[in-house]
Write a protein that binds this DNA or RNA. Structure first.
Lengths: 159, 159
DNA sequence: GTACGTGCAAAATATTTGCGTTACC
DNA sequence: GGTAACGCAAATATTTTGCACGTAC
């Protein structure tokens, strides 16, 4: 791992961007490694929202020896530290709900529990409010992320 | 599979509820089977939002021979037909996003593509608007589900 | 009676982990 | 130099599928 990182990153991650990434890593207590730079740069320059596996494919073009495990490990860390955003899509690890009343969800970031919540204000949100550029929006869901009462207590005690 | 379904369902699914379920199945073109009744009843009587595996455990108490595959198959069908709601949680099959600007997501129900969308109205939604009962809401995300332009075109042509 | 649904077991897919080596600070 | 990170490969976890048999309508 003695390659020139700037040349690896090329024009998708200019030197200032690399310095900015190094600073953000320091802020959250992560080492600034070539792998992390390339993963982050690849994600930043992606217009779509790649999965870990797709991103690994792109990153390998620049660091052919990088492992999928490293991509998974670092994406988890980036999400945990708030450097990137994880988007939950359907299927895997899905949870199910047969509550027929209009409601929204609160998801605990710590224990992943799901709580139903009722909000007249959110119920009133219209599909038309999303400027959707050709996308046919059929349904809108509002989800709050945070800490459930149990995990909030635990976190307070740990600290 | 000649057991008495009413006794299997017990008080968690009264006879009227069973009839109601049969009607809803008919409406969406699904056969009314004992497995489906029990899966649906178990979900309806769950206060939490169980995963497929957890639900399978509960359903097995009533139908010990039911397979996990049947639970997966039927949950997918129920979601597809709108009888139950699938809640996407973090981790598995996650997609990632390094867009630092405040934005929301549109997810295509057909191809699972994710599109960023900007909405001043949604950005203005406050955390305080969710009556959260002890849950510490740190972040709110609005997600629209529907058909992306590409899939909408395809669906129109298929029909 | 026929098409659909189920159980079983195997396959496919996705994600995590242990461990020896290497690189960051 | 010590700790954190990496690559590799194996282990887990999750979800889907083929097939033979049984059941709903």
């Amino acid at each position: 791992m003695s390659e020139n990182v700037d040349s690896i990153l090329g024009d998708q991650a200019s030197v200032p961007a690399a310095a900015e990434f190094a600073r953000r890593c320091r802020d959250v207590g992560l080492a600034d490694t070539p792998q992390r730079r390339v993963i982050f740069a690849a994600l930043t320059s992606s217009k779509d929202h790649p999965s870990a596996e797709v991103l690994h494919g792109r990153v390998k073009e620049r660091l052919p020896r990088i492992s999928l495990a490293t991509v998974y490990r670092n994406l988890s860390l980036f999400v945990e530290k708030g450097l990137v955003d994880g988007v939950a899509t359907a299927s895997s690890h899905a949870r199910f709900d047969a509550n027929p009343h209009k409601h929204h969800h609160l998801i605990c970031k710590s224990c992943a529990s799901v709580t139903d919540v009722y909000s007249a204000a959110y119920d009133a949100l219209g599909v038309d409010r999303l400027e959707s550029g050709g996308f046919e929006v059929q349904e809108i869901k509002v989800t709050g992320y945070g800490l459930c009462p149990r995990c909030k207590t635990k976190e307070t005690n740990d600290a």
